[in-house]
């Protein structure tokens, strides 16, 4: 690991100032569960770490207004057990509760989690001489070096949103739930303050898979807001893993339903574990409107969500698994009483 300077500013403005002053190689760090991990693998090589966790009050959880607001420094464990979130927005609580171990949930922040990087095996097997590509080529880690996952061991790779340059899965659960619920992030940076829909925070890999987020250099997430909706009551985050607990999703679905009697009036559907970014599924949402949620309709919606899917050599199972995960999630959510 390369040596780095370490600063702990007291306000967001000081943090941005420190970032700008540090110049090349500056990175913000919060819980550090992704960044420090990747530094140990020699994939991230910051020269200046700006630790934002000393900023007071940026961990507040506010549920009384017309939007839920989570300070970026609130831990995943704290938001997961917030009584209003747990009662009225199970999709949010479950996405956090099913992500990571309690040890990591106590460290990781809800802001930092949005910027978690992929678990693609080829991306992570990158350590080597800093000037070299590493053990495997990876366009995300070493732009232009190629992609070893395409035509390689691709059981875990994406079936939606991939390009000729990259098939790495967006690893998060929380960003998928926030995408389904139309959440926004509040961002502070050298150019001031702005609000970005969570769905607009992520790029498709295209031919620049090393550019994953739409944040400008020096911008940091300071808060997350979610519009309040009755659909939160009929919601769930359904996550399918290789083992029962503490694993990344091989397919997941965040769903929330507005019902008019026994018919769906509006559906929120987003997918995880299968796509190169948190993946909203408007085809599935449209199909559900006005329908009674029978098992057939639920599975039709699942298949609609994957209509554009393309599998590689070993990940074809994700298409049907993903569709059934959506169907199961819809059935679970519809069965929840308001």
């Amino acid at each position: 690991m390369k040596p780095f300077s370490y600063a702990r500013p007291a306000t967001p403005a000081e943090a941005v100032q420190a970032f700008t002053a540090a110049g090349a190689g500056a990175r913000y760090i919060a819980g550090g569960t992704t960044l420090y991990d990747l530094m140990k693998l020699d994939i991230e090589r910051p020269r200046h770490l700006i630790d934002v966790t000393a900023i007071q009050g940026m961990d507040a959880i506010e549920t009384s207004g017309d939007r839920l607001r989570f300070g970026a420094l609130a831990t995943m464990s704290a938001v997961a057990v917030d009584p209003v979130v747990a009662r009225d927005y199970p999709v949010l609580a479950e996405a956090l509760w099913k992500a990571a171990s309690q040890q990591l949930r106590n460290m990781a922040t809800v802001g930092g989690n949005l910027l978690q990087r992929t678990r693609c095996l080829y991306f992570r097997n990158g350590s080597g001489n800093p000037s070299s590509v590493g053990a495997f080529p990876c366009n995300k880690r070493a732009p232009g070096s190629g992609c070893a996952a395409i035509g390689g061991l691709d059981r875990g790779q994406a079936v939606l949103g991939q390009s000729d340059a990259c098939t790495a899965v967006s690893p998060g659960d929380w960003p998928v739930a926030l995408t389904a619920m139309d959440a926004e992030v509040e961002v502070v940076g050298p150019a001031g303050v702005r609000t970005v829909p969570v769905a607009a925070l992520y790029r498709l890999p295209g031919d620049t898979p090393h550019l994953e987020f739409t944040l400008a250099p020096g911008e940091m997430i300071v808060g997350i807001t979610v519009p309040k909706t009755a659909a939160g009551h009929r919601s769930t985050y359904h996550k399918i893993r290789d083992r029962e607990s503490y694993a990344f999703a091989i397919a997941s679905a965040a769903v929330a339903l507005d019902m008019d009697g026994d018919r769906v009036s509006r559906a929120h559907v987003a997918l995880g574990g299968v796509a190169t970014r948190p993946w909203r599924a408007p085809e599935a949402e449209r199909l559900l409107v006005g329908k009674r949620l029978t098992p057939t309709v639920a599975l039709d919606a699942g298949h609609a969500a994957f209509a554009q899917a393309n599998a590689g050599r070993q990940n074809g199972y994700k298409v049907e698994l993903g569709a059934r995960t959506v169907a199961d999630a819809l059935t679970i959510a519809a069965g929840r009483t308001v």
Binding site: Y6, G32, Y36, T53, Q102, N106, M107
Partner: peptide, 15 residues
């Protein structure tokens, strides 16, 4: 009082 993974905790963070 909270359990954490000490391997992923920068020592400077326990200041």
């Amino acid at each position: 009082g909270q359990r954490v993974a000490s391997c992923l905790t920068l020592a400077a963070k326990i200041d």
